[in-house]
């Protein structure tokens, strides 16, 4: 079994009356791409700042690489890389100088540092922009520079706090591919986002957060198993009577039927042949219907079912 890279126990952080982290627990194992999923204000960034020993907390314990984390634990910090949500680079330094500056805070040997900086630039695809100043870079390239500054020193643990906010799709894909590649090279990644598609795409394990609490944790399959919905069947129906809706609701595995704006949404719990049974019923009762499609549950459904609200509310 892999060792725990991060272990958080009963972490409580209050901002006056507001409880930002409420007895929060988390354990992240070596080699994972761990997703922290939650809406804005759910406590993701606060958790990260506590892990990094930037923020004081009221109660609990934070361990990194098996040791309690503290501001002066330089040997632990040496193996951590951070990509902040806001771009944090010097506007007066070029792309190369920025990466060199931040890498230099970790790597003292000049030759090694030079090699690492060049590798980081290659990795994020900024080789052609080496002598550019950050103000001359597009939003996507700036994000890539932000990432390069955080990972150039080849850390074992990389924390990425919403690195794709306000990024174009091309740069977003490049960033996501890069994260997977870093993981393949041996880095453990903590990835926070409120974009469930991204988390679903790259994370091996996910924790769903809201109001400073860890609501659910597991692989995406495990999370989806936790909820009642197995599949949602959507149909375009011009007209349907209430008695038909009631009869559909009585079909096996169907637990919720909703008809709104000529669209019929049928939620089924886990089970086989749900779609066939619904189609049979529609044909038998001669109810005209148009496009039909079935959806497997998403993390948003998981979040919705656990918290009663949409992830982006």
């Amino acid at each position: 079994m892999s060792a725990a890279v991060i272990k958080i126990e009963n972490l409580v952080k209050r901002y006056h009356e507001l409880v930002a982290l409420d007895h929060f627990n988390l354990e992240i194992k070596e080699g994972e791409i761990f997703g922290l999923l939650g809406p804005n204000g759910s406590g993701k960034t606060t958790t990260i700042n506590c892990i990094l020993a930037l923020l004081s907390f009221d109660k609990g314990n934070v361990e990194v690489f098996g040791e309690e984390m503290a501001p002066n634990k330089y040997h632990l910090k040496q193996d951590i890389g951070i990509v902040f949500q806001n771009v944090a680079v010097f506007n007066e330094l070029t792309v190369y100088e920025n990466i060199e500056y931040f890498c230099g805070l970790y790597i003292k040997n000049k030759q090694t540092r030079k090699q690492y900086v060049e590798e980081a630039m290659e990795f994020v695809g900024l080789n052609d922009f080496k002598s550019f100043y950050p103000k001359k870079l597009s939003g996507g390239l700036l994000r890539r520079l932000n990432i390069a500054c955080g990972i150039a020193h080849k850390p074992k643990l990389i924390i990425m706090d919403e690195p794709t906010v306000a990024v174009d799709p091309q740069s977003r894909n490049k960033i996501l591919e890069g994260i997977v590649e870093l993981n393949k090279k041996g880095a453990t990644i903590i990835y926070t986002s409120h974009y469930m598609e991204e988390v679903e795409q790259i994370c091996t394990r996910i924790a769903i957060m809201d109001k400073g609490k860890n609501l659910a944790i597991g692989t995406k399959e495990e999370l989806k198993m936790m909820i009642k919905t197995g599949e949602t069947i959507n149909m375009e129906v011009l007209e349907i009577e209430d008695k038909n809706l009631e009869e559909i609701k009585k079909l096996p595995h169907v637990y919720q039927v909703e008809y709104k704006e000529n669209k019929l949404h049928i939620k089924c719990s886990k089970g086989k042949h749900n779609l066939i049974r619904v189609l049979d019923y529609m044909q038998t009762n001669q109810i005209a219907f148009g496009r039909v499609y079935a959806e497997l549950p998403t993390l948003n459904d998981v979040f919705l079912e656990i918290t009663g609200k949409e992830l982006r509310d």
Binding site: N49, L52, A53, L54, P71, Y74, H75, K77, Q78, I80, I82, F84, Q85, N86, V87, A88, V89, F90, F102, L105, Y106, C149, G150
Partner: peptide, 12 residues
């Protein structure tokens, strides 16, 4: 500033 955060998490 976030820049300060980035500098403070370094082992310097």
């Amino acid at each position: 500033s976030t820049l300060a955060s980035r500098r403070l998490v370094a082992p310097t």
